[in-house]
């Protein structure tokens, strides 16, 4: 907060001033390391671990559930042990995961109005829009309007269920498998599963030429 805006301080890497909070974040980390509370390498390792998680993990799980109905049933009933089966063993500290299935009748969409709870273990860091005040305010009262902005127009006959993850559960949406994808391999199916459709703001999109006619 001592810094003036006179252009005297130039950071070599970006040439841009870091915000007050960015600098305080750096100071907090440096002090915690100096005091021996944690080490720089622990933070580095954690950063790499966080970085290694992405929506492609969730997409693989969804594609596997589409291809194997028994796995799907186990995934819906007990996500943690079903995920362990296919090599995703979640640490004990991971918040409980719940998987909800979209069907012809019911479409789920997830929000966290109070903060930004998100199934990071399977989707990585949440996108900016998920944390935005616009989404947190609107998703509960105007879910269909929000989905429309993401390109999804649902029929009135589909029941929209918005899940506000207020507590200890993190929700992953299992989207509907698109028609015409019967002959696709699991790897090909996984490519159809976007991050946004696992949050439920849209459905999987099948590019032209991919689906069997």
């Amino acid at each position: 907060m001592s810094e003036g805006h006179d252009g005297e301080h130039v950071h070599p890497e970006s040439g841009e001033e870091l915000s007050v909070y960015a600098r305080r974040a750096q100071a907090i980390e440096a002090l915690m390391v100096e005091k021996g509370v944690c080490s720089t390498s622990e933070v580095d390792q954690m950063m790499n671990m966080v970085e290694s998680r992405s929506p492609s993990d969730g997409a693989k799980v969804v594609a596997h559930a589409w291809s194997d109905p028994e796995f799907k049933a186990r995934l819906l009933a007990d996500p943690r042990s079903a995920l362990t089966e296919i090599g995703y063993s979640l640490p004990d500290t991971t918040p409980h995961l719940a998987v909800v299935e979209n069907t012809e009748q019911v479409h789920h969409m997830v929000v966290c109005t109070l903060c930004s709870c998100y199934p990071r273990a399977l989707l990585g860091r949440p996108p900016d829009w998920y944390k935005s005040f616009a989404y947190r305010s609107r998703a509960v009262v105007d879910p269909r309007g929000v989905m429309r902005e993401f390109g999804l127009e649902l029929a009135d006959s589909v029941e929209v269920q918005v899940l506000d993850s207020t507590a200890d559960l993190r929700y992953l949406v299992l989207p509907r498998r698109p028609a015409g994808t019967e002959n696709l391999s699991e790897a090909e199916l996984a490519k159809l599963v976007s991050r946004d459709c696992m949050i439920g703001v849209t459905d999987p999109h099948v590019p032209e030429g991919v689906a069997a006619s």
Partner: peptide
């Protein structure tokens, strides 16, 4: 409207997240 663009995470943000 929901702004669907995602900003490139800055180094300090990734470190703060990890810390």
């Amino acid at each position: 409207p929901i702004d669907q663009s995602d900003h490139q995470k800055m180094d300090w943000e990734m470190r703060a997240d990890a810390l």
